[in-house]
Design a protein around this nucleic acid. Structure first.
Length: 329
RNA sequence: UAGGUUCUAGUUUUGGU
């Protein structure tokens, strides 16, 4: 029974709801956890019709069942359905509150998320705080994100690496080296500075706050360097007009077998653009498609149009725009 | 001996869209 439930979960994680339901149907005595696992498989695949049918058919439900439904509806942007599941609960735990708060955040409604955060009757945990802080970031409310970080440090719920990465991102958007440094100090003092999320956020923060030297320092010290860190330093060098350094790091990245993604090329192309490297930019734009099989997105075209325009080739820039297979955003 | 299931996250072009 435990084994079969584990299989249902495995199929669920893989997004294979057919496999999950086959296993589920073969379980002779389905307990509540098995039902919840089947529900989770449907909700994480976004199949809310099937999830709702299972939910209604369940012989009994617990907090997990309701919470899974809230996050499922949240995931497909059905905020009204998420709310009605939440409202239908007699007892709610912190995960229920976190799920409904995230639902409003995903819907872009930070106002309601903030209200729920303030009135919730169960103790907040680190996810509650992180959810609202991340909502503020998505809504461009960077000062509020930092205020929440400060408020959180005064509670008995300590920030974790997710919180710190978010606070660093807020500092970066504000361009405030002073705030960013404070968050960095907090991270070091609390043993959170070596997480990959925090490392890349530090690299980004120092670069955006005008301090490319510190950004490079963090980059070289960080271990292991994941694609987020590589992308952050390449974009950072681009921002500072260090085109050749960006290209150099790009080739180092490939030497250590990190595969560039579409974000890497936005950084690389913008580096070429900021440094006026016309030939290089065109070369990498082609290479991106031919060697890396990455089809250009709006941002890549934007970089290249900018590059061509700055070099005085407005005719070629226009030609490129006309060659796009989709309408400019 | 209470176990398998639920919530948050860092990198993104165009100097002031």
């Amino acid at each position: 029974e435990f084994v079969q439930t584990a299989l249902v979960n495995m199929y669920g994680v893989l997004g294979c709801t057919n496999g999950a339901s086959k296993i589920f149907n073969r379980i002779p005595a389905k307990d509540l956890v098995a039902w919840n696992s089947m529900l989770a498989a449907y909700t994480s695949a976004g199949q809310m019709d099937k999830a709702q049918v299972s939910f209604d058919a369940m012989p009994s439900k617990d907090l997990y069942s309701y919470n899974v439904m809230i996050s499922g509806y949240s995931g497909i942007g059905a905020i009204a359905s998420a709310k009605s599941v939440f409202d239908g609960m007699k007892v709610r735990d912190v995960v229920s509150w976190n799920s409904i708060i995230s639902a409003y955040i995903r819907a872009g409604d930070v106002v309601t998320a903030r209200e729920l955060f303030r009135v919730m009757q169960v103790a907040k945990n680190v996810v509650t705080w992180n959810s609202l802080i991340s909502g503020c970031l998505q809504g461009g409310l960077y000062v509020e994100a930092i205020d929440l970080f400060d408020e959180m440090t005064a509670t008995d719920c300590s920030p974790d690496h997710v919180t710190v990465a978010s606070a660093l991102s807020a500092s970066a958007h504000l361009g405030s080296l002073e705030i960013g440094k404070k968050v960095h100090v907090y991270a070091v003092e609390n043993g959170l500075a070596s997480s990959p999320h925090v490392s890349s956020a530090l690299i980004d923060m120092y670069a955006k706050c005008g301090c490319i030297e510190r950004s490079l320092l963090v980059f070289y010290k960080s271990q292991p360097k994941d694609i987020y860190s590589w992308n952050a330093i390449i974009s950072g060098l681009a921002l500072h007009g260090c085109g050749y350094s960006a290209i150099k790091l790009f080739s180092q990245m490939r030497q250590v077998c990190i595969n560039p993604d579409d974000i890497t090329f936005i950084g690389l192309l913008s580096a070429c653009s900021h440094s006026g490297l016309l030939q290089e930019g065109c070369k990498w734009f082609r290479s991106m498609q031919e060697d890396f099989r990455i089809s250009p997105k709006l941002e890549h075209y934007g970089c290249l149009v900018d590059l061509l325009g700055r070099a005085g080739h407005l005719d070629l820039a226009l030609q490129l725009i006309n060659s796009m297979s989709f309408e400019p955003g």
